[in-house]
Amino acid sequence: MSKPVKIALAGEGGQGVQSVAQILMDAAALEGKEALYIPNFGIEQRGGVSIAFVQIGDEKIGAPKFKIGDIVIALSDRAVRRTQMYVGPQTLFVYDSGIQGVEGDLPKNAKQVLAIPALEIATKKLKPRVFNILIMGAVIGATHVVTLDKAKESIEKRLGYKFEKNPELRELDFKALQEGINLVAGMGVS
């Protein structure tokens, strides 16, 4: 029985980690896969770090939360510290290289730690608002949990109403997705 891929996405409120989780999950559904998504919520989240737990696999998922993720992505300094607990020897730990002052807080026990210039690329090459889609691309690039086609279809489903008013946004999002995939692919993820 194949194990599901376990993904934890953590950031500050407004960074869009929960939307990314939902789009990923919808993509998995389009793929015909099983998926389970649960956010941290309530007083757990208010004023704290927003975390999305996503699992994607071929069969029904077991427990909704997990102890150790296959990929853990932290998008702020607080998120880097908060997500330590989900990192183990099988974890690929990804964080944004623009985050300052976390060198001493990076996990020591991860399989691999990756700093990606996601925010920089989003800001300079694209637009800051597609940062989260770029992160989604990075997740797909590292895990291949869903195909690029289904990822695009899922984005279309969720954001289509925005694209109607602003078709450029579609192109921007799809570019961000590809940038994210390329970013990780070029960094020798094992």
Partner: peptide, 9 residues
């Protein structure tokens, strides 16, 4: 709470 808040098929 997990069943309340989680999303699955």
């Amino acid at each position: 709470g997990y069943q309340a808040k989680m999303r699955e098929s």
